[in-house]
Computed example of a mutant assay.
Amino acid sequence: MVRACVIHGAGDLRVEERARPEPGPGQALVAVRYGGVCGSDLHYWRHGGVGDFRLREPMVLGHEVVGTVVAYGDGAYGDGASGPVPGTEVAVHPATPCGVCPECLDGRRQVCRDTRYLGSAARMPHVQGGFAAEIVVPAGQLRALPAGLPLRRAALAEPLSVALHAVRRAGEVTGRHVLVTGAGPIGCLVVAAAKAAGAARVTATDLLPEALRYAGLAGADTLVRADDPDDAGWPDEVDAAIEASGVAAGLDTCLRRVRRGGVVVQLGMLPPGGSPFAGNLVVSREIELRGAFRFDTEFDEALTLLATAPHFDALISEVTPLADAPHAFTSAADRSRSCKVLLDFAD
Rank of each mutant, 00 (worst) to 15 (best):
M1D: 09
M1K: 08
V6E: 03
V6P: 03
G11D: 10
V15A: 10
E16Y: 01
R20E: 14
G26W: 12
Q27M: 13
Q27I: 01
Q27N: 14
V32D: 08
C38I: 05
H43N: 13
H43A: 15
V50I: 10
G51C: 13
R54I: 15
L55D: 06
L55V: 07
R56Q: 12
E57F: 06
V60M: 02
G62N: 00
H63N: 01
H63D: 04
T68C: 08
V70K: 09
A71S: 15
Y72K: 01
A76N: 08
Y77I: 00
A81I: 04
P84R: 01
G87L: 04
G87F: 09
E89H: 15
H93D: 15
V100A: 15
E103R: 15
E103N: 15
G107Y: 14
R109G: 14
R109H: 11
V111Q: 04
C112N: 11
R113I: 14
D114P: 03
R116H: 13
S120P: 12
V127K: 00
G129R: 10
A132Y: 01
A133M: 04
E134W: 10
P138C: 07
P146E: 12
L149F: 04
L151V: 09
L151M: 04
R152E: 13
A154R: 05
A154L: 07
A154K: 04
L156P: 11
P159W: 03
P159S: 10
L160Y: 00
S161N: 06
L164E: 11
L164Q: 06
H165L: 05
A166R: 02
V167S: 12
G171E: 06
E172S: 07
V173A: 02
H177R: 14
T181P: 01
G184S: 13
G187K: 00
G187S: 05
V190N: 05
V191H: 08
A192E: 06
K195N: 02
A199Q: 10
A199N: 05
A200F: 05
A200P: 00
R201N: 02
V202T: 07
T203V: 15
T203N: 07
T203S: 15
D206H: 13
L207D: 02
A211D: 01
A211H: 05
A215G: 09
G219R: 10
A220C: 08
T222N: 00
R225A: 13
P229I: 05
P229F: 11
D231I: 03
A232F: 00
A232M: 06
A232L: 12
D236H: 13
A240D: 06
A244Q: 02
C254S: 11
L255D: 12
R257G: 08
R259S: 12
R259Y: 03
V265W: 10
L267I: 03
G268C: 02
G268W: 11
M269G: 06
S275V: 14
P276E: 12
F277I: 12
L289Y: 13
A292M: 10
R294Q: 09
D296G: 09
F299W: 03
E301S: 15
T304C: 01
A307L: 01
P310Q: 04
I316F: 08
S317L: 04
E318F: 03
L322Y: 08
A323D: 13
H327V: 15
S331P: 00
S336F: 03
R337S: 14
V341C: 04
L343S: 07
F345G: 04
A346L: 05
